[in-house]
Write a protein that binds this DNA or RNA. Structure first.
Lengths: 211, 211
DNA sequence: ATAACAGCGTTATACTTTTCACAATTATAG
DNA sequence: CTATAATTGTGAAAAGTATAACGCTGTTAT
């Protein structure tokens, strides 16, 4: 069964909502409550849960702990996945800081940069290696997921090196589409696109509301 | 006519591809060339262009300059849109650096932060104001688009203040859904979601390729 | 000229994703 | 124990998106 990309995105959100509820001591939750928090419909939530097989009970809802565990297992593998980060500029450091200590099953285990001044240093708990050493570090750390945070001009070659070294999942922050083989999954995080999209729809909304 | 969100996203990409071609001196481009670069089909490209009305010519393709101008006007308004950035932490600074001087029609004109040490400073060409002054600054700078880069706990209240001050389009970097009225457009840029999505699909791909 | 070709614009078709609707299930109150 | 109300799980309908197909237009070569 093919899980829609949008479903996977929402599952990530539900997981965090479940986490938050656990922290608050809420032991169970209804689909309409999750829906309200996530900004979707309750049908959508139940439909999404069909993909992971998590079961709820009528009049009781979903067990928060079970739900979190179920989504967790579905999204990430049983053993924690190692992640590599390439490019320790402004953005790379921000991403590193963001993920540091946040997600126990998805840990940035190695950073790479060209700048000799950065190599060997430890930033936000993560060692910076030379890009030359990529293949060996990825192999020894069993990393197959990477984040590209290099300037646009170097994104494609970075992707190729990563794939060469066994990576098959990439979060790409460079504002350029990557050319990759079909067995590699890429998610583009594109600030320009986001901002332009918002600019466009904000303007449209404004026009509508003025009528 | 309602333009699909996905179309708007692709238009942003086509615009940048057109820009790149202009820099390289290419005066025209075919739909299948754009398609290849963007990783979509040529039908898709032509379909997308129907929404903006840009016209091409058989056997000649689309005039690069015209195309760029057409998309530009469609996405952003004729007059440059001002953008506000709230939260000058690691991520805020990275976003600011990223957009600095990049996009002539979408300029970050004001930054806001709680930290008194930052207020009054100029970072990447942008003045930092106190959050208290949000309403007046947004009014005088005619800003109606904002980027939220504050910690999760402050995201909702920040959104409310921005909307109060007239904002109707938000790029939200905080990993939490925002509760906003229907006339405000929000795009969530969610690192955790991106990484989890990649982790999931990368694992799926791995399993498929092992069969 | 005109035949052959290439590529646009658009309509029709196929596919994907979301919403609706309701039977089945479970807790609760009387 | 039974009636009632609430909520799940899912098949069916609807909405939204992407692909295919093809007539038309403009270019190129002969």
């Amino acid at each position: 069964m093919v899980t829609p990309e949008k479903t996977v995105e929402r599952l990530s959100l539900y997981r965090r909502l479940a986490e938050e509820m656990l922290r608050e001591g809420k032991m169970s939750v209804f689909s309409h409550q999750l829906a309200e928090m996530a900004g979707v419909t309750s049908s959508q939530v139940r439909r999404d849960f069909m993909f992971i097989g998590t079961q709820g009970r009528a009049n009781t809802g979903y067990n928060t702990k079970e739900l979190k565990a179920g989504i967790d297992q579905f999204l990430v593998s049983h053993e924690p996945d190692g992640v590599a980060l390439v490019g320790i500029g402004n953005l790379g450091r921000a991403v590193l800081a963001f993920f540091h200590g946040r997600r126990p099953n998805l840990i940035i285990k190695a950073c790479f940069d060209k700048d000799p001044d950065k190599i060997g240093r430890i930033i936000h708990g993560c060692r910076v290696y030379s890009i030359e050493d990529m293949a060996s570090v990825l192999l020894s750390e069993k990393i197959n997921i990477a984040i590209i945070a290099v300037p646009r001009a170097f994104a494609q070659e970075t992707a190729e090196k990563l794939i060469q070294a066994g990576v098959n999942g990439i979060v790409n922050f460079a504002p350029v589409p990557l050319n990759v083989p079909g067995n590699v999954y890429v998610d583009n995080v594109d600030f320009t696109m986001s901002l332009e999209k918002v600019a466009h729809f904000a303007r449209k909304q404004k026009i509508v509301s003025e009528i």
